[in-house]
């Protein structure tokens, strides 16, 4: 390829290893791999503590993406896939995780992951991925008590925001900050359907509306859409928002204003994780939940270790 195609809609890739843990001393090593439509996350846990993770792009081939994700998470650890006791696949592409012994739905994994990350106080989790949106109510153990999922309609999924970012040519990470650079909060985009919203945005651009106003109008519409989805479940405190959209302050702040409920702070429940500066990334919550399930299933004797080395 001669020229790199500009991508306005993807969050950058990342990986991290916990240098405080010597995995060779660990008893149980589990992993969770969350293959989403846009990105893939792999998490490795040693005796229930976060050891390593990666966040990479999902390629056109899901099995490859899962393998690549795990490889990147394992980089510099000296660990190989053979050292893992149990691996669980989750997410939209969960059936395409070759090294997984089992799959679990992302709803169950998200609730469990959020319980670990945010602590037992979390009752409502809203996850907005690239291709779907999940609203979950859970109990203090991270067990799902109510859920709904929307994967039929792009409105209210990360995709809606991606399409918008691409349309106006503004990188997705600039959307949030720019949405606040307005004199007055504009009326929100009125169409729910992303396709119809697109024509509405084109119309506004042609009318000469300032770009930031349009960005604000779209963020407000997105926030409103999330509120509508959440209404089915009724938000109970504490409320956490995860997935790519959680990084977009433009949507999160407006969502908080509309519901009057603050979202949980982006800090680990475990104070040690904070003092040691473990990176806080809500995108790994699904994979983390899968790794926790792997751990719990092994401990309960429901499954056997598949460790090879």
């Amino acid at each position: 390829m001669a020229e790199e195609v500009k991508e306005f809609w993807r969050w950058p890739e990342s990986h991290w290893t916990n240098l405080d843990i010597d995995w060779k001393q660990g008893k149980i090593i589990t992993s969770g791999v969350d293959v989403g439509s846009v990105s893939t996350q792999a998490v490795i846990m040693v005796d229930g503590e976060l050891f390593a993770f990666s966040s990479t792009r999902t390629g056109s081939d899901s099995p490859d993406s899962a393998l690549k994700g795990l490889d990147i998470a394992l980089e510099v650890t000296g660990m190989t896939a053979d050292n893992i006791d149990y691996c669980i696949g989750t997410g939209y592409g969960r059936v395409n995780v070759p090294m997984a012994q089992q799959t679990i739905t992302e709803i169950a994994c998200h609730a469990r992951g959020a319980n670990f990350v945010y602590g037992p106080a979390v009752r409502t989790v809203m996850d907005m991925g690239g291709q779907d949106c999940k609203a979950i109510r859970c109990d203090e153990r991270g067990k799902v008590i109510k859920f709904m999922m929307n994967d039929k309609c792009a409105a209210g999924t990360g995709r809606g925001m991606e399409v918008f970012a691409d349309l106006i040519g503004v990188p997705v990470w600039e959307i949030g900050p720019r949405s606040f650079q307005v004199e007055k909060e504009p009326a929100m985009i009125s169409s729910t359907c992303v396709v119809f919203a697109k024509s509405e945005v084109v119309g506004l651009l042609e009318e000469g509306k300032p770009e930031n106003d349009i960005i604000a109008a779209y963020c407000a519409a997105m926030a409103h859409r999330i509120v509508e989805l959440l209404n089915r479940l009724e938000i109970e405190k504490e409320f956490a928002i995860t997935g790519g959209i959680a990084k977009n302050e433009g949507v999160v702040k407006r969502l908080e204003n509309e519901t009057g409920v603050k979202t949980m702070e982006k800090v680990w429940y475990n104070p040690e994780y904070n003092s040691r500066n473990y990176p806080f990334d809500t995108q790994i919550i699904g994979a983390l939940g899968a790794a926790l399930f792997a751990m719990a299933l092994l401990e309960r004797g429901r499954v056997e270790s598949a460790r090879k080395a």
Binding site: S60, Q131, K152, C153, A154, R159, G160, V194, V195
Partner: peptide, 16 residues
């Protein structure tokens, strides 16, 4: 896909 936005990606992957 039922949704036009998701349908578009599906068409693109069919083309690929």
């Amino acid at each position: 896909a039922q949704c036009a936005v998701f349908g578009e990606s599906e068409v693109v992957s069919l083309i690929h």
